[in-house]
Amino acid sequence: MIHVIDIEGDHATWTFPADPSAVGAARSTVRAQLHDWGLDGVGDLAALLVSELVTNALRHATGPIEVCLLRPSDLDRVLRVEVSDPLPELPHERVARPGDEGGRGLQLVARTTRRWGTRPGDVGKTVWFELTVPK
């Protein structure tokens, strides 16, 4: 079950259970919110990257996963997306070999975003990325 924490003019935050259904739910929720904000131009990419980060959180963490969108201002046109989970270990980009099943999520985030990073939280960590929104 998705728990809406907050949806205000410039940001939206949801909590998803640590369950495989969270991946699709997060993807569709992000896409719908970006549509509501008139940001369809980055909706598909943002949804794809959120699903990668939520999948990573599911593989390594056992608690709820929070997704936050920070709407871009008219000046900077940068959408910020944050995915948080209760695992304190910060992820790192690794090089996946051709036969590996995983290991490409952070590579995809790094190659398709304006900027990305991680930060520790009070409980767990946050992985964030920024996308430039077309005018």
Rank of each mutant, 00 (worst) to 15 (best):
V50Q: 01
S51G: 05
E52I: 13
L53M: 04
V54K: 04
T55C: 06
N56Y: 14
N56G: 11
N56L: 14
N56P: 14
A57H: 07
A57I: 08
R59F: 07
R59V: 08
R59H: 13
R59Y: 11
H60I: 08
A61I: 01
G63C: 02
G63P: 08
P64D: 13
P64A: 06
I65W: 04
C68T: 15
L69K: 03
L69A: 08
L69Y: 09
L69Q: 05
R71T: 05
R71F: 15
P72N: 12
S73C: 12
D74T: 12
D74N: 11
D74M: 11
L75I: 15
L75Q: 15
L75T: 15
D76V: 08
D76E: 15
R77H: 14
R77K: 12
R77Y: 09
V78H: 07
L79P: 00
R80C: 12
R80I: 13
V81F: 08
V81K: 01
E82L: 15
E82H: 08
V83N: 00
S84A: 12
P86M: 01
P86I: 01
L87K: 02
L87Y: 02
L87W: 00
L87H: 04
P88C: 00
E89C: 00
E89Q: 02
L90D: 07
L90T: 04
H92G: 13
E93I: 09
R94D: 11
V95K: 05
V95M: 10
V95I: 13
V95F: 15
V95W: 11
A96C: 01
A96D: 00
R97G: 09
R97M: 08
P98A: 10
G99F: 10
G99A: 15
G99T: 09
G99Y: 04
G99P: 01
D100S: 12
D100F: 07
G102I: 10
G102L: 13
G103F: 10
G103C: 10
G103V: 11
G103D: 09
R104K: 11
R104M: 08
R104S: 10
G105N: 08
G105L: 04
G105E: 02
L106P: 03
L106E: 03
L108F: 09
L108G: 01
V109K: 01
V109L: 07
A110T: 05
A110H: 07
R111N: 10
T113N: 07
T113C: 13
T113M: 09
R114G: 03
R115H: 14
W116T: 03
G117L: 06
G117Q: 03
G121Y: 12
G121R: 14
G121M: 14
G121P: 02
G121L: 15
D122A: 08
D122C: 02
V123F: 00
V123C: 03
G124N: 03
G124C: 04
